[in-house]
Structure formats: structure tokens, C-alpha cells
Design a binder for these strands. Sequence first.
DNA 1: TTGTATGCGTTATCAG
DNA 2: CTGATAACGCATACAA
Lengths: 340, 340
Amino acid sequence: MATRADVARLAGVSASTVSYALSGERPMKPETRARILAAVAELNYVPHFAAGALAGKRSKAIALLFAGSELAISPVALEYVTGAANAARARGYHLILWPSDETALADVKRFSLSGLLAGVLLMEIRLEDERVEALQELNIPITLIGRTKNTGEIPFVDRDFSAVAKAATSYLADLGHKKIGLLTQRRGKDELVLGVDSRFKSEVLTAAKSESFEICELSVENSAQAGREACAALHENHPDATALVALPDLATMGFLSAAQELGIRIPHDFSVLALNTPDNQVGLTWPPLCTVTIPANEMGRAAADILIDQLKAEQTQSRIQQLWAGELSIRGTTAKSPRL
Amino acid sequence: MATRADVARLAGVSASTVSYALSGERPMKPETRARILAAVAELNYVPHFAAGALAGKRSKAIALLFAGSELAISPVALEYVTGAANAARARGYHLILWPSDETALADVKRFSLSGLLAGVLLMEIRLEDERVEALQELNIPITLIGRTKNTGEIPFVDRDFSAVAKAATSYLADLGHKKIGLLTQRRGKDELVLGVDSRFKSEVLTAAKSESFEICELSVENSAQAGREACAALHENHPDATALVALPDLATMGFLSAAQELGIRIPHDFSVLALNTPDNQVGLTWPPLCTVTIPANEMGRAAADILIDQLKAEQTQSRIQQLWAGELSIRGTTAKSPRL
DNA sequence: TTGTATGCGTTATCAG
DNA sequence: CTGATAACGCATACAA
């Protein structure tokens, strides 16, 4: 591995000049710079990451904490991850994947103190999230994918649940539906309330109220099986419901397959509109799911960009709190109410 | 951030003694060690990553190269990633996600020269893969998830395609099937032949031959739509086929839904056995897919472990070339041949 | 059993 | 416009 000293020798300049040539932090005779760049290319010189981090007091790595220990990570989460990883890479940063139980606070602190990280991206945000406070106390820049109850000045990227809910309900209202099911997610450990669950549910209920829908809520775990059971339950208890607004993705797919088995023709007899299903899952069912799309990749990108903007303390080009709506994507699972 | 000097001061020892206490690289009076550990806890000391890497010449980070730039990463790949990330973390290493086009060789080299990485995990391995040679030339330890044509001494973790194929075909033979479809994957760029595609296909063909199956191959892209079309084609051209062995996961799900739409009752009329579908996708269809399972999480773990074993040059506890078979998991999509 | 000294490859602050 | 040089925090060979 060639070092900076090698380059300096070859180019006939001092070591520090090499650094400046590469960083552009100070003006230089073009000729000198050219000579240096040639030497760099010749020797295949790449700055040493650790040396830079040690001397400069700032590393070029950010971490993404994610809950991937046991359960399969959700398809949406994956898109956030790839989006963030790509954005980081595009800006010369490394994205470190840190599998971490949502509650492993000690670990998070420890890790953040190792000096490897310039900043941290958090997912699966709870309404009250101790990780956020802890990292702020440690003075580690963070950006959330999701948001806590009190957002204050914390940078985040999240869905615009209100807009999504409105788009969904007004579309169903236009189709003439009056009584609809609402499939919501129930998590195992009740105390850990994720912002996404709570906000999404309340916004949909609010939007539904203003459309005067009659709502039957079905709160289930996010599994295909749970979705299947929910379908049976709705069919039996509320046979007059004509549509479903669905949040948990796996359960949504279970619901759909169960409906067809029960002889419910979709979308002719019953409409299904999914609000939290990523595009890459859409094609798996038949008919393909009508959704309000989640720009998860872009959101992941945006989160990384916001974080890196902070680090560079550059004029933050983008708003540090962003809401993304997504758009109604009409596909085969929705149609006019059969009661019209 | 507390530094090693702070700890030394508090414990009343020299700085190096702190290092030795933590690494255990030399014997020490238990009492001294205890005092040091107490000071470490008291000050919340965490060794500085960059300083360690710089001084010790070896970092504690490994990278996982993955193709996640544009297309959605596949569900299986995700499990490899989480498995590897968890294993790395468990052993005190960091897993860096490096989104990298399969062909971006220059980038890979560059990255590997930055001194950040102790080793590299590669996925989406092609039969001829220049990344492998390049990294070996740079003397970067690697481990593959998948394998090249000539495996030589290269450490890898891969599926035991032969075992999988045999399990699948013998099961279908037991059920009395004689003529079966084989759904294989066709990639966009033809020259980049992934080992998984080529090996899987040939092993299934071999196993099928020894069971005297009549095989109709359907080569498709891995999308639900392509799977749907394949189903229609098979139904029309080979109505006497009674089962399908399926490789590409998304296409498999498309095939299944199309079959039901065409009025083909599964599994009564037709059996479907998926060989490359991860567990977390299984519940999404109805009936749930019969598969030969992919121990992807464990494989990811194993890959990271093998790599880290190499780095530590410890007695490599595990074989450096591992094949994982997975097991037949009988679920609702297979049954006796209707022609019996 | 413990302490001392050196060097790792940068960045940044001085001089010149 | 460019060259020295002092940190940076730690690992490790060497000395005691």
C-alpha cells in the first residue's frame, strides 16, 4: 500500500502538499497539482481511512442502526437501507450496518464512542425513544427515519401519514364505499409503540371520519396468517363492509389470498388498498395491490444526505425535517363499491 | 471521550498496561486488571477505532459487497446480510454495507486499499468473477457467498445444489409425478452468469434425469409477471405436466397465482415445489409454498465467521468451504400426481 | 509483573 | 505558494 510519503517523494513535494492537492483546501500551482495527481495515479494511492480519522478527528463513516437480530427485516426497511447506503457512498462515506435490538441502549452508546462514526441513522423509531436522547447527549449527529413524539429540532425523514390517509380515503369515497375495514398493526411488546403504527392509525381514522366512513378496525400482528384470520373475521362480522384500508404488509397479503378463497371476488366484490406495502411486494399478489406508494429508497437517500449535510456543516441544502407522501397507485384491487 | 491515558491515570498504571489488560495479550496480576477494568467502566472508556486500526495495522471492520444500486435486493440476499451483520457484531467486528455494481472493479479495489477493511464478503458470485482475483492480488482476505467456477482454496459458503435437487426430485417422484416443468432464471445481461443460476439448473436436470422425469424448461426473468406468463405457457403447451420445480422466487409466486386464476387447483391438480424461496416469503401465497428451505441467515453467519477466523489466523474452527443443503419443508402446494 | 519508547499515516498549524 | 512539525490514540517490541 502506497502512502502519502511515497506520493510526495515521487512528485518531488512535501507530504502535506499532497494532502492539500487532494483536498483542494488551499490554492496551488496547477502544475504542482498535476504532478501530484499523476503520482497518485501511478502509485494507486488511496488515503488511509484510519489515519485520516485519527488525525482529522472525524471519520467518514455513518452507521445505520436496524433491528435485524431475529425476525426478518421488513421489505420496506431494506429499501431504506439500500437508499441510505447508496447516498452515503455517493458522498464518499461508508454506511455501517449495525444490527441492534431496539432497546440495546448500552450497545448503541458504546459503539458511538468508538470514534468510528461521524453520525448515526436510526430506524424503527418509537414515540418515546431513549436512543435519540442518548445519542444527542453524546453529541453524535443523528437523523431519524421515522420520528418521535416531540420532534423538536431533530432531523428526520418520515412519511406524511396525513396526506397518505387523505389520498386513500378520498379515493375510496369516490368509488362509493361507505363501510370499510381498517387493518392495523399490533406489535408483540405493547409498550414499544412505534410512531409509524400510532400515527398511521390515527391519521386514517381522522381522514375516515371526515369522509363519514363507518370503520371496523382489525388489529393484528404482521403475518400472512394473521391477515387471513382478519379476513375471515371481517367477512363474518361485517359482511356489508366493501373495502379495506390495510397497513401491515404481510397481513395484507394474507388477507387478500384468504378473501379469494372465501369466494370474495377482488376487486368486484371488495376493494383492498394498501398503505404500507413497498413496490417490490406489489407484484406478488393477484390482482396486483393498489397502494399508496412508499418512496422508501428516496427517503433512505434523503436521510443519509441530511445527516451528511450536518456533518459537513455546510449550508444545509435540504430541510432537515422531511415528510414524504408517496402517491396513489391504482392497480387491480380496487373498484367501485358493489353497493352502488 | 475518555482516552486510554485517562484510564491509566485513574487506575494508577501506565497506558500500555491498560491495553494489555483489555486485550489479555499478557499475564497480569488479577488485582491490577480489576482496578483497570473498574476505571474503564467508571470512565466509560471505549478504545478508539481509528487509533487501534492505525497502530495495530488491522481494522475490525469487514465489508459486504452487494448489488443494491438499482433493482430491489432479493429477499434471500437480505437474510444473508443480516446473518453476516449479526455474526460480525457478535465477534466485535463492524459490517460495512458496500453497494457496488457487480462490475465496478475499480471501486472495489480502491475501497479495499483504504485500510478500513480487514476483509471482504462477496455475494452474487459469477462463474468467472474478476472481483475475486483482484482482491486476492491485493491480499485482502475474502469469503464468498456463492462460488466461482474454480473454487480452489477460496473460502466460500454456498448451497448444496445437488442435495437440494435430489431432495426435490425424489420427493416429486414419490408423489408419482412423471412430467414436470422447470422454472429457471434468465438474467438481463447474458454474459454475467451467476453460479447459482447455472449450477442449480444443471443439478436439477441431472437429478431429474435419474428419476426419469420428462422435463419442460421455462426460462424467465425473475418477476411475478414473467412467472404468470410461464404458467400460461406451460398450461397451454404441456397440459400433461403435473408439477413444477421452481427456482426464481418472484416468478414462482407469479406462477402460483396465475395457476389458480386459470382454474388449476393447487395442489390437487398441480404441484409446485420452490427451491430458491426464502422462508419469509413462504406465507405470502396460498397455499403456503412447499420449499426446500434456504438456511440463508445461517449461511450469512457462517460466511462472516469463516472470514473472521481467517483474519485472526486462529485455528480455523470451521471448514472454509461449506455447502448447505436446507431441508424439504412440505407445505400446501404439493400433493400426489393427479394421474395416479 | 509492569513501564517506556517508537511508529502507524494522516490533518492542521505553524513558518517561510 | 509550499515545507516542516506537532498532535491524534493506540499497539507492541523492548527494557526493567
